[in-house]
Simulated assay, not measured.
Amino acid sequence: MNHASEAAASETPLLFGRIFDGRGGARAIGWDKAQDWQPAEPSEVLWLHICRNREGVQHWLEADLGVPEPTAELLTSDLTRPRAFREGDALVGTLRGINFNPGAQPEDMISMQFWCDGRRLVTLRRHPLQTPREVLALLDRGDGPSDAGAAITLLAELLIARMGHSIVGMNEILDDLEHDDPEENAERMLGQISTIRRNCLSLKRHMAPQHEALEQISRDAPAWFEDHDRREIAESIARLRRYLDDIDISKESALVLQDEIRARSLASSEHATYMLTIVAGIFLPLGFLTGLLGINVGGMPGMDDPDAFWAVVALCTLLFVVLIVVFRRLRWL
């Protein structure tokens, strides 16, 4: 799409539009021409990618596409739990992908709704999503999907693949943490592990319903959703299951590593406390003896004897040695 078309599209809900040629390529189409579009060839499919929070989208869905009002509300609402269902000859669904926009966290998810009757595919989003642009780039190179079913399966596959990249990234961080020194970096490591555990919980919460949505597509899609599309969806479902298992493994690994770091920190603290207790046990009798001999009252023995100081030093040394021997026999040292 040229700059003039992009500028025109920015004034309408349309982000971009393409007409599939049935051979992996596509040509651009603007918002105005898309309103009364009819396929010139049996293999043509219209794809419109729309910003759903712009004005007039719900009315356009109802008036121009004949989408029932509850479905149009679903396609434009912020209730974006992944789901899919068949409505007559149309397939309706909501999928989620990782938010890779600047400043976003990996566990932040972006939803993409879609509606398709086999001839017209409408995808809707609120925040920028990279996956539709990837499919657009493939179409513009002539390597894209040839029909609506292939487009839906490719979009789902790319959304799931991006989730996989995020999971791999978390596992790499866990691998690095396992080789880090918990005694020097315990606080930083615990912070990173807590973040990974939160990410795992968030991804699991969003990806589990997406698994159900893909199964619903595979099971209930209309006839225009061909057998090879169902096989591709089945592959995406299998991959998503593996990712869900990987999330569980990452979560458990993070928990084990967190417990290990805390156990080491606790053991180090207990050892330090133990050593302080031993030192106190050794010097407490010595402190008592020197304190007793240091009271400033009359009648203290040795006050007039110049050798009394060395006698006290010898007594303290002997007491120190006796305490060390006793502690060793008690296996306190």
Rank of each mutant, 00 (worst) to 15 (best):
N171P: 05
N171W: 03
M163R: 04
N199D: 14
C200N: 08
N199K: 12
M163Q: 12
L201M: 15
L174W: 04
E184C: 09
H206E: 11
E172Y: 08
L159I: 04
V168G: 12
A161Y: 12
I152L: 14
T195M: 13
R162Y: 06
G191P: 03
L158M: 12
R198D: 12
N171R: 12
S166A: 15
M170S: 06
P182N: 09
A156D: 00
C200L: 11
E215V: 05
I196F: 06
P182L: 10
I193P: 00
L159T: 01
N185W: 05
A208D: 13
D175A: 13
C200W: 02
H211A: 03
Q210N: 06
E178G: 06
E215A: 09
L203V: 08
L154D: 05
H165C: 10
D175E: 15
I152Y: 00
N185L: 09
M207E: 08
R197A: 09
L203Q: 10
G149W: 02
E178M: 11
G191D: 11
I193A: 03
M189K: 08
T195W: 10
T153Y: 00
D181V: 08
T195K: 15
M163D: 09
V168H: 11
E157Y: 03
M163V: 15
E157N: 10
R198F: 13
I152P: 00
I152V: 14
L214N: 00
E187V: 14
G164Q: 07
A156Q: 00
I196A: 03
E183H: 11
A213C: 03
E215K: 08
R162G: 01
N199M: 13
H211K: 10
P182V: 07
L174P: 02
Q210T: 03
Q210G: 01
G164L: 03
T153A: 11
I167N: 03
C200F: 05
A208F: 12
Q210P: 01
S166R: 04
E212R: 08
H206W: 06
L177D: 02
L174K: 02
D180K: 14
I193V: 13
A151E: 03
I160H: 00
L214G: 00
H211M: 07
L190K: 04
I196W: 04
I160P: 00
M207Y: 08
N199V: 12
R205I: 04
R188H: 13
L177T: 03
K204A: 14
E212M: 11
S166T: 15
G191M: 08
L214T: 00
L190C: 06
D175W: 07
E172A: 11
T153Q: 06
E187N: 12
A161C: 09
P209V: 01
